[in-house]
């Protein structure tokens, strides 16, 4: 199974440099957000406990970047389904779960590259690691793990809809509320009550807060365990659902 997963992952990674536009497109949006929020709104936003708005904002942007990056998983799965390639794979004597695991793993690698570029962009606009290096590494790993978990949600969506375009719109339907109604850009304590309530239970808030604390040298408190729990929980539940769906797709 490991061998098949590796074969699948390398197939997906091999083509990444062949369509650099996809990679660039994945970076344009977060870079624009950084510039917009830092230079347009940045002056008027002050958040207690953070020396600059950058220190607050960038972890949120990182989190949003990995989340949107998981959209590639859905598009890739839907494309394979559409092209009939999945039919061939299902007729091969390979491990069937390797198809989706290979896909999510290769998207994790892709996400890591995007993330690294965003870190550089962050440094460029004045973001700094205020805590220890291990804490910063932990924060980054946490966010990437979160992106991996969301890849499974997107894989399930990719298996369930009929076209790549639908995956993209289906992804945005939940990705936008989940990133905006959270602590990504501003402190949710200023939100109206129902939104604040949503922001509080939003796993995205926990992940952003935990990594933000780690990058800034604070203790992440219960947000750390909470977000690790979410990432593992989502991966297990949606990994199971997606693989089950894959095994059954068209078999009935």
């Amino acid at each position: 199974m490991l061998r098949d997963t590796w074969t699948e992952a390398t197939r997906n990674l091999r083509v990444v440099p062949r369509s650099p536009d996809l990679m660039i497109f994945a970076l344009v949006q977060p870079v624009m957000f950084v510039l917009l929020f830092v230079y347009v709104f940045g002056g008027s936003i002050e958040i207690p406990g953070f020396a600059t708005y950058q220190q607050y904002l960038l972890p949120g942007i990182f989190a949003q970047t990995v989340l949107f990056g998981s959209g590639f998983t859905g598009a890739g799965v839907a494309e394979d389904m559409q092209k009939g390639l999945i039919e061939r794979l299902r007729s091969l004597p390979m491990s069937q779960s390797a198809v989706l695991i290979g896909r999510t793993v290769s998207d994790l690698v892709r996400n890591t590259v995007t993330f690294a570029v965003m870190l550089l962009v962050g440094f460029f606009v004045g973001f700094r690691f205020e805590g220890s290096i291990p804490a910063a590494v932990a924060a980054s790993a946490l966010l990437l793990g979160f992106g991996y978990a969301f890849s499974w949600i997107m894989a399930l969506i990719g298996l369930s809809v009929s076209s790549v375009e639908t995956v993209n719109s289906a992804g945005f339907v939940w990705m936008f509320p989940i990133t905006f109604v959270s602590s990504t850009f501003v402190d949710p304590s200023t939100f109206p009550t129902p939104l604040r309530w949503f922001a509080d239970i939003n796993p995205f808030t926990a992940a952003t807060n935990a990594s933000r604390a780690l990058y800034n040298g604070y203790s992440p408190g219960r947000d750390l365990l909470l977000s690790i729990g979410w990432a593992i929980g989502i991966s297990v539940v949606f990994g199971y659902l997606a693989n089950r769906r894959f095994a059954r797709a068209n078999r009935t």
Binding site: G84, L85, R88
Partner: peptide, 14 residues
């Protein structure tokens, strides 16, 4: 077995 289905099952990017 070897299967060639009705739609070409190839990866276009490879």
């Amino acid at each position: 077995i070897g299967l060639t289905g009705q739609d070409a099952a190839v990866d276009e990017r490879l």
